[in-house]
Write a protein that binds this DNA or RNA. Structure first.
Lengths: 225, 225
DNA sequence: ACCTGAACACCGTTCAAGT
DNA sequence: ACCTGAACACCGTTCAAGT
């Protein structure tokens, strides 16, 4: 990646890839995923939509880059300690990132091969190696953790977004889900019904970590008997 | 400007929710997620876009219903045997469903609270109960499995879609990813580099099942020492 | 009740024309 | 090299008007 001049002291910044991505993140945070349009972005940057195409290849490029900026920031802020607690820290870091910026979740799950994905995978992979997991089991271990982290985080983000769409806060939303589940047919949905109560009071973050520990336990435990 | 040459196929059945969903599934399968538009759907059904709104509330409703139809079909086709092998069967059933119909993956992960999600959760939950998992661990166990199944399946579907976008078959796509990873910076990405070789030859389905077994192992193993 | 199709209010993206 | 803004080819959705 060729570096450009970093003398950013100018008062009126001219358009640049960085500035566009920065404005995109602001727009995504304030208006959600649907709020990011070239027209709104152009207005915010006091330019025309066509100008953006000089710096950004497409909307997908824009979303991907914005997402990668956030992920890189998050990962850089983490301290590295023991392997297992580092894995937990990475997991929680991504969970919180997506919780606060739901659009990161969909960007992350929609486009594979993303640099962001490799960044996260690398962090976790190094810890899996440090744990002494045999070579041939490393891929499965990292794959399971990646899928779980991205899967739960995105699901959580989607939940919040759905709640916001319906104008509910977290409590009322869970209450509504709980009620809906408790009214399911007893014969067809006994398990979902039995979970209805737990849904209402559960702590997303704690449950998320419990799942991570479950997978770590599977990774740690001896080979299948 | 373009004259309509297509003699609209006569409509033998009158419009109905079921017929619209059926046609949507055909369209989604043949043209992908972006191929489902009200205009294309209306043409296929020899009607106008407005007519569809009499039966379907919105596009989101349409996608959700199409997704639910597929999931219900898939789950109904599964035989129930022992708890663990039933969980594996559900997991593989969803994996294959999403592999063959990638749009199901994004519909499933985008909209939570979906009936489809409850259907899958119920099937898995019943098996978790049958395994004798203590009440207070059931939610974490089911949550981990759900997240893993939906996460990996959707990631896999996204990969295939990306490959198709670039006009590559599965082999060439994995080859490309493998090459990209092997060219990453050694200092920054040692783990991803070391996985580059394995990526090329790996079997998605086998890896997916390996992850399921990893989680099942975690569920089975005794409480944290 | 159900269908029609034009119209509305948007999109992402392109491109001749400017500086 | 970089920016402008009108224009193109689409969207989902609505609605007066038909049967």
């Amino acid at each position: 990646m060729a570096e450009r001049l970093r003398s950013a002291g100018r008062r009126e910044q001219s358009l640049s890839r960085e500035r566009i991505i920065e404005a995109s993140i602001e727009l995504l945070d304030s208006c959600g995923e649907d709020g990011l349009t070239y027209r709104a972005l152009a207005e915010r940057l006091a330019t025309g939509p066509g100008a953006l195409y000089w710096h950004i290849a497409s909307k997908s490029d824009l979303l991907t880059s914005a997402c990668d900026t956030m992920v890189a920031q998050t990962l850089n802020a983490l301290a590295v300690t023991t392997p297992e607690s580092t894995i937990r820290a990475v997991a929680l870091g991504i969970f919180d990132l997506i919780d606060e910026h739901p659009w990161v979740g969909s960007a992350l799950t929609r486009t594979p091969g993303l640099l962001s994905i490799v960044r996260i995978l690398e962090r976790i992979g190094q810890q899996i190696c440090a744990l002494g997991v045999p070579d041939e089991q490393q891929w499965a271990a990292v794959g399971a953790l990646m899928a779980y982290i991205l899967g739960v985080s995105s699901q959580n983000a989607a939940n919040r977004q759905l709640a916001r769409t319906q104008g509910l806060d977290r409590g009322s939303f869970l209450e509504a889900v709980s009620t809906a589940w408790s009214q399911l047919d007893t014969k067809q949905y006994p398990f979902a019904r039995s979970m209805a109560g737990q849904i209402r009071d559960h702590d997303d973050r704690a449950d998320f970590l419990a799942g991570i520990d479950l997978i770590l336990k599977g990774i740690r435990s001896p080979r299948q008997p």
